[in-house]
């Protein structure tokens, strides 16, 4: 091993393809994005340098704050529902029989492989203010709780976040299930000999040993929430008005609807910074030490 690690040329040769790909596909676009964020650009013709104008305008733009707030709400709803539910499902499936394991693994993961358009259309009909299933259920229960789920400025973003949460909980579940399955069985056997209940074993053994997986789940849940776009684009188009805009939507609006690509790049940079900060905080706060079984 030491011999291989000492061979710098070999290391370089092995990592070069990946590094080239990352540079071309990630770093180069990021650099371009950053430089264009200081310009006025219509997306076709040469851009004009405008200094900090786009950023100053961005911080004065009420839609920026709406987008920021909605991104946080989206991330919170997603994180607070997805991770606990995925954990419970993962533990339940881990402790179940072979057939059930297979069945539930496929069933829970199924929504994640569906197209966002299909899921959005499904929920659109369920949320329909006049004929939607959810309002009908309330009606059948005799409750006067008819809601205009997507047309209301306040509930719209939560309603959309729930759709995304529903669709991708299965993904988190698979991650957590594989993490739980990778914990050596002898820890649980030892706990069982000591008279530990299943609940306590999960609490004291499974959860702490899954810290690294939780770190990854947290990052994808939160950054996924901050980045949200497709679901609201299909379901509300950012509306009513701008009430379901996120930063990604602001970026899309600026670049593709208004034709101001420079301003769109500035919003994209803010989004990158936001996701970067969240990732750094999570990396610092959760599972700081590598767990080796």
């Amino acid at each position: 091993m030491k011999k291989y690690l000492g061979n710098k040329a070999m290391i370089l040769a092995l990592i070069a393809p990946t590094m080239i790909l990352i540079c071309v596909m990630v770093l180069y676009p990021l650099v371009i994005l950053f430089t264009k964020s200081f310009t006025e650009w219509d997306g076709l013709n040469p851009s004009t340098f405008k200094g900090m104008d786009n950023y100053i305008r961005l911080f004065k733009d009420p839609i920026f704050y709406t987008g920021l707030q909605n991104g946080i709400i989206f991330a919170l709803v997603q994180t607070c529902i997805q991770i606990p539910v995925a954990t419970l499902l993962a533990f339940a499936v881990k402790d179940s029989g072979r057939f059930e394991k297979k069945f539930f693994r496929i069933t829970y993961y199924l929504p994640a492989v569906l197209s966002i358009t299909v899921v959005a259309q499904l929920w659109l009909s369920m949320y329909n203010a006049e004929y939607g299933l959810i309002n009908k259920i309330f009606e059948l229960m005799g409750l006067e709780y008819r809601q205009n789920w997507l047309g209301d400025g306040d509930s719209g973003i939560v309603a959309i976040a729930i759709v995304n949460t529903w669709q991708f909980t299965g993904y988190q579940f698979i991650l957590l299930l594989s993490a739980a399955n990778s914990i050596p069985e002898h820890y649980f056997e030892a706990a069982q000999i000591d008279g530990c209940s299943k609940f306590k074993a999960h609490l004291r053994i499974t959860l702490p040993l899954m810290q690294e997986s939780y770190k990854y789940c947290l990052i994808i849940a939160i950054t996924g929430g901050l980045n949200a776009f497709a679901t609201m684009n299909i379901m509300t188009g950012g509306g009513p008005g701008t009430s379901t805009y996120t930063l990604t939507y602001l970026m899309y609006r600026s670049a593709f609807k208004v034709g101001n690509y420079g301003y769109g790049c500035a919003s994209a940079i803010m989004l990158v910074v936001q996701c970067l900060i969240v990732s750094i905080i999570i990396n610092k706060a959760v599972a700081r030490e590598r767990i080796i079984y």
């Binding site: 209301d152 400025g153 509306g239 009513p240 008005g241 701008t242 009430s243 609006r253 609807k257 101001n260």
Partner: peptide, 20 residues
């Protein structure tokens, strides 16, 4: 003016929904 058109669209949509 696409910017004005977009902002008008967002505003009139909000008026229709009663959120503005």
């Amino acid at each position: 003016n696409t910017e004005l058109y977009t902002v008008l669209g967002e505003g009139t949509q909000s008026l229709l929904a009663g959120v503005m």
